[in-house]
Design a protein around this nucleic acid. Structure first.
Lengths: 196, 196
DNA sequence: CGTCTATTTGAATGTACTCAAAAGCGGTGG
DNA sequence: CCACCGCTTTTGAGTACATTCAAATAGACG
Protein backbone atom coordinates (compact mmCIF):
# COMPACT_ATOMS: atom_id res chain seq x y z
CA UNK A 1 0.00 0.00 0.00
CA UNK A 2 1.55 3.29 -1.06
CA UNK A 3 1.46 6.43 1.06
CA UNK A 4 -1.47 8.02 -0.78
CA UNK A 5 -3.62 5.04 0.10
CA UNK A 6 -2.46 5.15 3.70
CA UNK A 7 -3.47 8.80 3.78
CA UNK A 8 -6.99 8.34 2.52
CA UNK A 9 -7.61 5.46 4.92
CA UNK A 10 -6.42 7.58 7.78
CA UNK A 11 -8.70 10.36 6.56
CA UNK A 12 -11.70 8.01 6.57
CA UNK A 13 -10.80 6.70 10.01
CA UNK A 14 -11.00 10.19 11.44
CA UNK A 15 -14.75 9.86 10.97
CA UNK A 16 -15.65 6.17 11.15
CA UNK A 17 -14.11 2.90 12.31
CA UNK A 18 -13.04 0.66 9.46
CA UNK A 19 -11.47 -2.74 10.09
CA UNK A 20 -8.56 -4.05 8.04
CA UNK A 21 -10.69 -6.10 5.64
CA UNK A 22 -13.14 -3.31 4.90
CA UNK A 23 -10.23 -0.91 4.54
CA UNK A 24 -8.61 -3.18 1.96
CA UNK A 25 -11.90 -3.49 0.16
CA UNK A 26 -12.39 0.27 0.13
CA UNK A 27 -8.90 0.82 -1.26
CA UNK A 28 -9.51 -1.77 -3.95
CA UNK A 29 -12.38 0.34 -5.27
CA UNK A 30 -10.21 3.40 -5.81
CA UNK A 31 -8.55 4.32 -9.06
CA UNK A 32 -5.41 6.44 -9.27
CA UNK A 33 -5.42 9.34 -11.67
CA UNK A 34 -3.17 12.25 -12.61
CA UNK A 35 -3.97 15.68 -14.03
CA UNK A 36 -1.82 18.23 -15.79
CA UNK A 37 -1.98 21.87 -14.84
CA UNK A 38 -5.25 23.44 -16.03
CA UNK A 39 -6.66 20.05 -16.94
CA UNK A 40 -10.41 19.88 -16.43
CA UNK A 41 -11.64 17.03 -14.22
CA UNK A 42 -15.33 17.89 -14.45
CA UNK A 43 -17.06 20.15 -16.92
CA UNK A 44 -20.22 21.99 -15.92
CA UNK A 45 -23.33 20.26 -17.37
CA UNK A 46 -21.57 16.92 -17.52
CA UNK A 47 -22.46 14.37 -14.87
CA UNK A 48 -19.99 14.06 -12.03
CA UNK A 49 -19.03 10.37 -12.11
CA UNK A 50 -16.17 10.36 -9.62
CA UNK A 51 -15.29 11.61 -6.20
CA UNK A 52 -11.74 12.93 -6.33
CA UNK A 53 -9.59 12.63 -3.25
CA UNK A 54 -6.57 14.85 -3.81
CA UNK A 55 -3.26 13.25 -2.83
CA UNK A 56 -1.01 15.75 -4.57
CA UNK A 57 -1.49 19.20 -6.10
CA UNK A 58 -4.69 21.21 -5.99
CA UNK A 59 -7.98 21.88 -7.77
CA UNK A 60 -10.51 24.67 -8.05
CA UNK A 61 -14.28 24.15 -8.04
CA UNK A 62 -15.90 26.97 -10.00
CA UNK A 63 -18.68 28.04 -12.32
CA UNK A 64 -19.13 30.53 -15.13
CA UNK A 65 -22.01 32.97 -14.86
CA UNK A 66 -24.20 34.29 -17.67
CA UNK A 67 -21.63 36.97 -18.55
CA UNK A 68 -18.91 34.33 -18.79
CA UNK A 69 -17.15 35.44 -15.61
CA UNK A 70 -15.59 32.66 -13.58
CA UNK A 71 -16.39 32.33 -9.87
CA UNK A 72 -14.35 30.00 -7.66
CA UNK A 73 -16.49 28.30 -5.03
CA UNK A 74 -13.70 26.43 -3.26
CA UNK A 75 -10.27 24.93 -3.55
CA UNK A 76 -9.25 21.36 -2.79
CA UNK A 77 -5.70 20.55 -1.83
CA UNK A 78 -4.00 17.44 -0.44
CA UNK A 79 -6.35 15.39 1.76
CA UNK A 80 -9.48 17.15 0.49
CA UNK A 81 -12.34 15.87 -1.59
CA UNK A 82 -13.27 17.52 -4.86
CA UNK A 83 -16.57 16.73 -6.55
CA UNK A 84 -19.95 18.29 -7.27
CA UNK A 85 -22.08 16.97 -4.43
CA UNK A 86 -25.42 17.49 -6.14
CA UNK A 87 -24.26 16.08 -9.46
CA UNK A 88 -22.55 13.03 -7.97
CA UNK A 89 -25.21 11.93 -5.52
CA UNK A 90 -28.12 12.52 -7.89
CA UNK A 91 -26.23 11.81 -11.12
CA UNK A 92 -27.57 14.97 -12.70
CA UNK A 93 -25.71 17.60 -14.78
CA UNK A 94 -23.13 19.49 -12.76
CA UNK A 95 -23.44 23.14 -11.85
CA UNK A 96 -19.74 23.42 -11.08
CA UNK A 97 -16.62 22.70 -13.08
CA UNK A 98 -13.42 21.35 -11.54
CA UNK A 99 -9.90 21.93 -12.84
CA UNK A 100 -6.38 21.17 -11.64
CA UNK A 101 -4.33 24.22 -10.64
CA UNK A 102 -1.07 22.29 -10.53
CA UNK A 103 0.09 18.91 -11.79
CA UNK A 104 -2.00 16.77 -9.47
CA UNK A 105 -2.69 13.22 -8.35
CA UNK A 106 -5.94 11.78 -7.08
CA UNK A 107 -7.61 8.65 -5.83
CA UNK A 108 -11.06 8.38 -7.35
CA UNK A 109 -14.22 6.57 -6.39
CA UNK A 110 -16.76 6.09 -9.16
CA UNK A 111 -20.51 6.26 -8.60
CA UNK A 112 -20.78 2.51 -9.18
CA UNK A 113 -17.98 1.80 -6.71
CA UNK A 114 -19.62 4.18 -4.23
CA UNK A 115 -22.86 2.20 -4.39
CA UNK A 116 -21.05 -1.10 -3.98
CA UNK A 117 -19.18 0.34 -1.03
CA UNK A 118 -22.33 1.49 0.75
CA UNK A 119 -23.92 -1.91 0.26
CA UNK A 120 -20.98 -3.90 1.50
CA UNK A 121 -19.76 -1.55 4.24
CA UNK A 122 -22.79 0.31 5.63
CA UNK A 123 -20.57 2.27 8.02
CA UNK A 124 -19.76 4.46 5.04
CA UNK A 125 -23.35 5.72 5.12
CA UNK A 126 -22.34 7.52 8.24
CA UNK A 127 -19.15 8.78 6.65
CA UNK A 128 -21.11 10.41 3.87
CA UNK A 129 -23.77 11.81 6.15
CA UNK A 130 -21.00 13.35 8.23
CA UNK A 131 -19.21 14.62 5.14
CA UNK A 132 -22.39 16.34 4.03
CA UNK A 133 -23.15 17.65 7.48
CA UNK A 134 -19.66 19.00 8.03
CA UNK A 135 -19.59 20.54 4.58
CA UNK A 136 -22.89 22.21 5.33
CA UNK A 137 -21.81 23.55 8.69
CA UNK A 138 -18.52 24.97 7.47
CA UNK A 139 -20.24 26.50 4.48
CA UNK A 140 -22.86 28.05 6.74
CA UNK A 141 -20.19 29.68 8.84
CA UNK A 142 -18.33 30.87 5.77
CA UNK A 143 -21.57 32.26 4.38
CA UNK A 144 -22.60 34.33 7.39
CA UNK A 145 -19.08 35.58 7.82
CA UNK A 146 -18.45 36.42 4.20
CA UNK A 147 -21.23 38.98 4.27
CA UNK A 148 -19.93 40.52 7.48
CA UNK A 149 -16.21 40.67 6.70
CA UNK A 150 -14.21 43.00 4.47
CA UNK A 151 -12.12 41.71 1.58
CA UNK A 152 -8.95 42.02 3.66
CA UNK A 153 -10.42 39.88 6.45
CA UNK A 154 -11.63 37.27 3.98
CA UNK A 155 -8.14 37.22 2.50
CA UNK A 156 -6.60 36.46 5.89
CA UNK A 157 -9.11 33.66 6.44
CA UNK A 158 -8.29 32.20 3.07
CA UNK A 159 -4.64 32.06 4.08
CA UNK A 160 -5.55 30.24 7.28
CA UNK A 161 -7.94 27.81 5.63
CA UNK A 162 -5.60 26.85 2.81
CA UNK A 163 -2.13 27.12 4.34
CA UNK A 164 0.62 27.44 1.76
CA UNK A 165 -1.77 27.36 -1.17
CA UNK A 166 -1.40 31.06 -1.91
CA UNK A 167 2.13 30.65 -3.22
CA UNK A 168 1.18 27.73 -5.45
CA UNK A 169 -1.71 29.13 -7.48
CA UNK A 170 -2.70 32.14 -9.59
CA UNK A 171 -3.84 35.29 -7.83
CA UNK A 172 -6.77 35.72 -10.14
CA UNK A 173 -8.17 32.45 -8.80
CA UNK A 174 -7.73 33.61 -5.23
CA UNK A 175 -9.39 36.93 -6.08
CA UNK A 176 -12.29 35.06 -7.64
CA UNK A 177 -12.66 32.93 -4.51
CA UNK A 178 -12.67 36.05 -2.35
CA UNK A 179 -15.19 37.79 -4.58
CA UNK A 180 -12.89 40.68 -5.50
CA UNK A 181 -10.97 41.75 -8.60
CA UNK A 182 -7.38 40.61 -9.18
CA UNK A 183 -6.43 44.29 -9.29
CA UNK A 184 -7.75 44.92 -5.81
CA UNK A 185 -6.15 41.78 -4.40
CA UNK A 186 -2.82 42.94 -5.78
CA UNK A 187 -3.29 46.20 -3.87
CA UNK A 188 -4.20 44.38 -0.65
CA UNK A 189 -1.08 42.25 -0.84
CA UNK A 190 1.08 45.28 -1.42
CA UNK A 191 -0.33 46.94 1.70
CA UNK A 192 0.18 43.71 3.61
CA UNK A 193 3.87 43.67 2.62
CA UNK A 194 4.39 47.31 3.56
CA UNK A 195 3.30 46.50 7.11
CA UNK A 196 6.43 44.37 7.64
CA UNK B 1 -56.39 16.37 11.30
CA UNK B 2 -56.10 20.14 11.11
CA UNK B 3 -54.74 21.99 8.12
CA UNK B 4 -51.30 22.55 9.63
CA UNK B 5 -50.84 18.81 9.95
CA UNK B 6 -52.06 18.24 6.44
CA UNK B 7 -49.47 20.76 5.27
CA UNK B 8 -46.50 19.16 6.93
CA UNK B 9 -47.44 15.72 5.66
CA UNK B 10 -47.72 17.08 2.16
CA UNK B 11 -44.34 18.70 2.64
CA UNK B 12 -42.79 15.38 3.66
CA UNK B 13 -44.44 13.59 0.76
CA UNK B 14 -42.73 15.89 -1.71
CA UNK B 15 -39.55 14.04 -0.81
CA UNK B 16 -40.49 10.52 0.31
CA UNK B 17 -43.47 8.17 0.14
CA UNK B 18 -45.26 7.76 3.45
CA UNK B 19 -48.26 5.47 3.82
CA UNK B 20 -51.30 6.40 5.91
CA UNK B 21 -50.18 4.54 9.05
CA UNK B 22 -46.67 5.95 9.04
CA UNK B 23 -48.12 9.37 8.33
CA UNK B 24 -50.39 9.12 11.36
CA UNK B 25 -47.49 7.95 13.45
CA UNK B 26 -45.31 10.83 12.30
CA UNK B 27 -48.02 13.36 13.11
CA UNK B 28 -48.50 11.83 16.56
CA UNK B 29 -44.89 12.68 17.37
CA UNK B 30 -45.34 16.38 16.68
CA UNK B 31 -46.15 18.98 19.29
CA UNK B 32 -47.90 22.23 18.51
CA UNK B 33 -46.39 25.43 19.81
CA UNK B 34 -46.93 29.17 19.54
CA UNK B 35 -44.52 32.09 19.82
CA UNK B 36 -45.10 35.77 20.46
CA UNK B 37 -43.34 38.41 18.40
CA UNK B 38 -39.62 38.56 19.32
CA UNK B 39 -39.88 35.41 21.42
CA UNK B 40 -36.69 33.36 21.34
CA UNK B 41 -37.12 29.72 20.32
CA UNK B 42 -33.45 28.79 20.57
CA UNK B 43 -30.68 30.65 22.32
CA UNK B 44 -27.12 30.39 21.08
CA UNK B 45 -25.06 28.00 23.28
CA UNK B 46 -28.17 26.11 24.33
CA UNK B 47 -28.76 22.73 22.76
CA UNK B 48 -31.29 22.69 19.96
CA UNK B 49 -33.85 20.12 21.15
CA UNK B 50 -36.57 20.61 18.55
CA UNK B 51 -37.02 20.91 14.85
CA UNK B 52 -39.52 23.69 14.21
CA UNK B 53 -41.78 23.42 11.21
CA UNK B 54 -43.37 26.83 10.72
CA UNK B 55 -47.11 26.72 10.02
CA UNK B 56 -47.82 30.40 10.63
CA UNK B 57 -45.67 33.51 11.01
CA UNK B 58 -41.91 33.66 10.53
CA UNK B 59 -38.57 33.27 12.29
CA UNK B 60 -35.01 34.47 11.89
CA UNK B 61 -31.93 32.32 12.39
CA UNK B 62 -29.03 34.54 13.47
CA UNK B 63 -25.90 34.90 15.56
CA UNK B 64 -24.14 37.67 17.42
CA UNK B 65 -20.49 38.25 16.62
CA UNK B 66 -17.72 39.24 19.04
CA UNK B 67 -18.68 42.92 18.72
CA UNK B 68 -22.28 42.11 19.58
CA UNK B 69 -23.56 42.76 16.07
CA UNK B 70 -26.38 40.54 14.93
CA UNK B 71 -26.12 38.66 11.62
CA UNK B 72 -29.16 36.96 10.14
CA UNK B 73 -28.27 33.69 8.42
CA UNK B 74 -31.71 32.86 7.09
CA UNK B 75 -35.42 33.31 7.53
CA UNK B 76 -38.05 30.61 7.91
CA UNK B 77 -41.63 31.28 6.93
CA UNK B 78 -44.67 29.03 6.50
CA UNK B 79 -43.71 25.54 5.30
CA UNK B 80 -40.06 25.94 6.20
CA UNK B 81 -37.96 24.26 8.85
CA UNK B 82 -36.12 26.27 11.47
CA UNK B 83 -33.45 24.65 13.62
CA UNK B 84 -29.70 24.61 14.10
CA UNK B 85 -28.65 21.62 12.04
CA UNK B 86 -25.34 21.05 13.80
CA UNK B 87 -26.78 21.52 17.27
CA UNK B 88 -29.82 19.32 16.71
CA UNK B 89 -28.16 16.38 14.99
CA UNK B 90 -25.15 16.30 17.30
CA UNK B 91 -26.91 17.65 20.42
CA UNK B 92 -24.12 20.16 20.98
CA UNK B 93 -24.40 23.87 21.93
CA UNK B 94 -25.95 25.92 19.17
CA UNK B 95 -24.04 28.48 17.14
CA UNK B 96 -27.23 30.19 16.00
CA UNK B 97 -30.17 31.70 17.84
CA UNK B 98 -33.74 31.57 16.54
CA UNK B 99 -36.48 34.09 17.23
CA UNK B 100 -40.02 34.71 16.01
CA UNK B 101 -40.49 37.83 13.89
CA UNK B 102 -44.27 37.72 14.12
CA UNK B 103 -46.77 35.90 16.28
CA UNK B 104 -46.10 32.40 14.99
CA UNK B 105 -47.22 28.78 15.16
CA UNK B 106 -45.12 25.67 14.74
CA UNK B 107 -45.19 21.92 14.74
CA UNK B 108 -42.16 20.61 16.59
CA UNK B 109 -40.28 17.34 16.56
CA UNK B 110 -38.06 16.67 19.58
CA UNK B 111 -34.73 14.90 19.33
CA UNK B 112 -36.18 11.88 21.12
CA UNK B 113 -39.15 11.77 18.76
CA UNK B 114 -36.78 12.15 15.82
CA UNK B 115 -34.85 9.08 16.91
CA UNK B 116 -38.01 7.06 17.41
CA UNK B 117 -39.19 8.14 14.01
CA UNK B 118 -36.03 7.04 12.25
CA UNK B 119 -36.16 3.67 13.96
CA UNK B 120 -39.78 2.97 13.17
CA UNK B 121 -39.95 4.57 9.72
CA UNK B 122 -36.53 4.23 8.07
CA UNK B 123 -37.77 6.08 5.00
CA UNK B 124 -37.23 9.25 7.00
CA UNK B 125 -33.48 8.60 6.86
CA UNK B 126 -33.77 9.50 3.24
CA UNK B 127 -35.87 12.55 4.04
CA UNK B 128 -33.18 13.92 6.31
CA UNK B 129 -30.35 13.08 3.96
CA UNK B 130 -32.22 14.95 1.24
CA UNK B 131 -32.98 17.84 3.57
CA UNK B 132 -29.30 18.13 4.36
CA UNK B 133 -28.29 17.74 0.75
CA UNK B 134 -30.75 20.31 -0.51
CA UNK B 135 -29.83 22.73 2.23
CA UNK B 136 -26.21 22.33 1.28
CA UNK B 137 -26.82 22.83 -2.41
CA UNK B 138 -28.94 25.93 -2.00
CA UNK B 139 -26.48 27.37 0.46
CA UNK B 140 -23.62 26.67 -1.93
CA UNK B 141 -25.38 28.57 -4.68
CA UNK B 142 -26.21 31.42 -2.34
CA UNK B 143 -22.60 31.51 -1.22
CA UNK B 144 -20.99 31.76 -4.61
CA UNK B 145 -23.57 34.26 -5.74
CA UNK B 146 -23.41 36.44 -2.66
CA UNK B 147 -19.78 37.20 -3.38
CA UNK B 148 -20.49 37.95 -7.02
CA UNK B 149 -23.62 40.07 -6.70
CA UNK B 150 -24.12 43.65 -5.55
CA UNK B 151 -26.35 44.50 -2.59
CA UNK B 152 -29.15 45.52 -4.95
CA UNK B 153 -29.06 42.17 -6.76
CA UNK B 154 -29.02 40.27 -3.46
CA UNK B 155 -32.02 42.33 -2.38
CA UNK B 156 -33.98 41.30 -5.46
CA UNK B 157 -33.12 37.67 -4.80
CA UNK B 158 -34.27 37.96 -1.23
CA UNK B 159 -37.63 39.20 -2.50
CA UNK B 160 -37.90 36.21 -4.82
CA UNK B 161 -36.81 33.67 -2.22
CA UNK B 162 -39.12 34.93 0.51
CA UNK B 163 -42.16 36.25 -1.36
CA UNK B 164 -44.26 38.64 0.71
CA UNK B 165 -41.97 38.46 3.72
CA UNK B 166 -40.52 41.90 3.14
CA UNK B 167 -43.73 43.64 4.19
CA UNK B 168 -44.07 41.53 7.34
CA UNK B 169 -40.72 42.02 9.06
CA UNK B 170 -38.29 44.74 10.14
CA UNK B 171 -35.95 46.21 7.56
CA UNK B 172 -32.99 45.99 9.87
CA UNK B 173 -33.38 42.20 9.81
CA UNK B 174 -33.49 42.17 6.03
CA UNK B 175 -30.43 44.41 5.91
CA UNK B 176 -28.62 42.05 8.26
CA UNK B 177 -29.53 39.08 6.05
CA UNK B 178 -28.21 40.93 3.00
CA UNK B 179 -25.01 41.92 4.78
CA UNK B 180 -25.61 45.68 4.47
CA UNK B 181 -26.59 48.47 6.86
CA UNK B 182 -30.25 49.39 7.41
CA UNK B 183 -29.36 52.87 6.20
CA UNK B 184 -28.15 51.61 2.88
CA UNK B 185 -31.12 49.30 2.42
CA UNK B 186 -33.42 52.26 2.99
CA UNK B 187 -31.65 54.06 0.17
CA UNK B 188 -31.90 51.07 -2.17
CA UNK B 189 -35.64 50.82 -1.60
CA UNK B 190 -36.08 54.50 -2.27
CA UNK B 191 -34.28 54.14 -5.60
CA UNK B 192 -36.37 51.07 -6.38
CA UNK B 193 -39.56 53.07 -5.81
CA UNK B 194 -38.39 55.98 -7.95
CA UNK B 195 -38.06 53.62 -10.91
CA UNK B 196 -41.84 53.12 -11.00
C1' DC C 1 13.85 34.39 -27.68
C1' DG C 2 9.25 35.79 -28.42
C1' DT C 3 4.50 35.48 -27.28
C1' DC C 4 0.83 35.20 -24.28
C1' DT C 5 -1.15 35.79 -19.98
C1' DA C 6 -0.88 37.40 -15.24
C1' DT C 7 0.29 41.02 -12.18
C1' DT C 8 1.23 45.71 -10.89
C1' DT C 9 0.43 50.65 -10.88
C1' DG C 10 -2.30 54.87 -11.28
C1' DA C 11 -6.44 57.72 -11.97
C1' DA C 12 -11.26 58.20 -12.02
C1' DT C 13 -15.66 56.27 -10.59
C1' DG C 14 -19.10 53.72 -8.16
C1' DT C 15 -20.68 51.21 -4.17
C1' DA C 16 -21.52 50.94 0.57
C1' DC C 17 -20.50 52.75 5.34
C1' DT C 18 -20.39 56.04 9.32
C1' DC C 19 -22.15 59.72 11.80
C1' DA C 20 -25.75 62.79 12.90
C1' DA C 21 -30.29 64.41 12.92
C1' DA C 22 -35.13 64.26 11.78
C1' DA C 23 -39.31 61.82 11.02
C1' DG C 24 -42.32 57.78 11.65
C1' DC C 25 -44.37 54.03 14.27
C1' DG C 26 -45.79 50.89 17.99
C1' DG C 27 -46.65 49.97 22.48
C1' DT C 28 -47.75 51.60 27.21
C1' DG C 29 -49.67 54.26 30.87
C1' DG C 30 -52.56 57.85 32.14
C1' DC D 1 -58.28 57.75 23.42
C1' DC D 2 -54.38 60.42 23.64
C1' DA D 3 -49.65 61.48 24.84
C1' DC D 4 -45.33 59.97 25.44
C1' DC D 5 -41.26 56.99 25.11
C1' DG D 6 -38.20 54.09 22.69
C1' DC D 7 -36.95 51.99 18.62
C1' DT D 8 -36.90 51.87 13.50
C1' DT D 9 -36.60 54.17 9.25
C1' DT D 10 -35.39 58.06 6.43
C1' DT D 11 -32.40 61.72 4.79
C1' DG D 12 -28.04 64.08 3.98
C1' DA D 13 -23.07 64.85 4.06
C1' DG D 14 -18.58 63.13 4.19
C1' DT D 15 -15.53 59.02 3.90
C1' DA D 16 -13.71 54.41 3.03
C1' DC D 17 -13.79 50.37 0.33
C1' DA D 18 -13.64 48.23 -4.07
C1' DT D 19 -14.21 48.60 -9.19
C1' DT D 20 -13.19 49.88 -13.99
C1' DC D 21 -10.19 51.23 -17.54
C1' DA D 22 -5.75 51.80 -19.38
C1' DA D 23 -0.95 51.16 -19.61
C1' DA D 24 3.39 49.28 -18.01
C1' DT D 25 5.94 45.35 -16.16
C1' DA D 26 6.82 40.71 -14.99
C1' DG D 27 6.48 35.62 -15.60
C1' DA D 28 5.54 31.24 -17.81
C1' DC D 29 6.04 28.31 -21.49
C1' DG D 30 6.85 26.65 -26.03
Amino acid sequence: MDSARALILEHIRQTIDVNADDGEYFLSLLRENTYGKKEVALRSDDICRNQLFVTKGSFKVYYNDAEGNEHVAKFAMENWWAFDIESFFHQVPAFYSIAALEPSETLELSFEAYNELLQRVPAFERFYRMLLQNSFISLQHRMTQSLALTARERYVRFQQKYPGLEARIAQKDIASYLGITPVFLSMLRKQELEKH
